[in-house]
Nucleic acid binder design. Sequence first.
DNA 1: ATATTTACATACATTCACGGATGTTTGCAA
DNA 2: TTGCAAACATCCGTGAATGTATGTAAATAT
Lengths: 225, 225
Amino acid sequence: MVRKTREAAAATREALLDAAERVFRAKGVAHATLADVAQAAGLTRGAVYWHFRDKAEMLAAMCERAALPMEAMIACCGANLKLPPLTILRNNAVQGLMRLARDTRTQAVFDVVFNNCESNDEATPLNDRRRLNDEGCRQHVAGLLRRAIDEGALPADTDAAMAAEIIKAFMLGVMHAWVQDPRAYDLERNAHQMIDVLLAGLVARPPRVVGKSIVPYQARTVAAD
Amino acid sequence: MVRKTREAAAATREALLDAAERVFRAKGVAHATLADVAQAAGLTRGAVYWHFRDKAEMLAAMCERAALPMEAMIACCGANLKLPPLTILRNNAVQGLMRLARDTRTQAVFDVVFNNCESNDEATPLNDRRRLNDEGCRQHVAGLLRRAIDEGALPADTDAAMAAEIIKAFMLGVMHAWVQDPRAYDLERNAHQMIDVLLAGLVARPPRVVGKSIVPYQARTVAAD
DNA sequence: ATATTTACATACATTCACGGATGTTTGCAA
DNA sequence: TTGCAAACATCCGTGAATGTATGTAAATAT
């Protein structure tokens, strides 16, 4: 049984990525072999190497089927403009958590990204993508915060960049911790509360600009041996 | 040159762990070879296998030289009892961030734990330790929060467990994000502000008990192939 | 109807990290 | 002073994963 039709081939590709989610999650990306993935999909390494050049490309393709952590936030900011910016921010954040709480694929990909993937060479495309939309999220949130400052919802000397960092860190931490142990609490039910706590804190005691707290970004390099 | 004195042998052991921090951080634990670590320390694999049984034991030993993320919080809660519980909580949290901001070893170990270590077999001792003091941190924080409730600093229907989860997630997120890009902002200068934002939110809009939001812990199992 | 390409499976060669065995020198105890 | 074991270095065998090359049957183009 070989030479499937085009749709069948696309289906096996998806099956391989489904298997990759399970195997990478269980064994870790580095420790998992492509034979494991193929076997989990009921195929052989031939199929894997037909659809993907190597493990790195497979990992990238797997992650492209789901939204990355911070991407989930700004992805679903629909046509609800004209709402107060802090409300938009709240909706975005809650939507990001809701997507994670409900979509099992997002859960699998996040679990791999957070806990089962080392940021080495074979994850560079993934990490590049993360950097990009982490920065996009920063900009998006900081923009909303500046609008909130303009509208008087936050004091004028609010450190918007630091506030954005705080929000991003909180989202990251909630997602990371929950994905690590989804049984700890019902994220879908508590997402609103959690976001509201942080936003209330931002309003009650916003970070102020004191000096040059935020320095321009510069890629870090860690030297080996 | 062989057969060093006892102190010299202990020094080479430390040198190996120093090298492990650098190499694991640069290449990832799984992708790094023990020959890489040995070479980075100016030694050979013979030295590695003399001091450690395998890579897992080496990783565990490396992590035991530093406090784990949540361990850093409760580690330095000194004799400042009798202070209001929320103040103790604030001090603990700030101390945790300060240690990360100042101690380069903590930075290296956290970077490995967060971004360069897959939670597979070779990290099980590490993960077990993380689970343990994650739970310990949960208990510690929840206890402080309950004291705060008793003293009237927080409303009676505050969901202490959920609040502890929120604080833990925030700490995790801040540490994770900062370690990933330490140049983004000066953690040492902004740690107070960041913690204060969250604590102000907890006071202004604490999570309330609505139903059974927290379910008892049960270890998750992910099935492979 | 034939040719060609697709979509894999199978077989093979190469690399490479691991762990164990062995060698070697020296500190330390008796 | 001898003997033993510590503290490594060096060597080697082995398995495992990778990437490639080849085989092959069906789908699709012509």
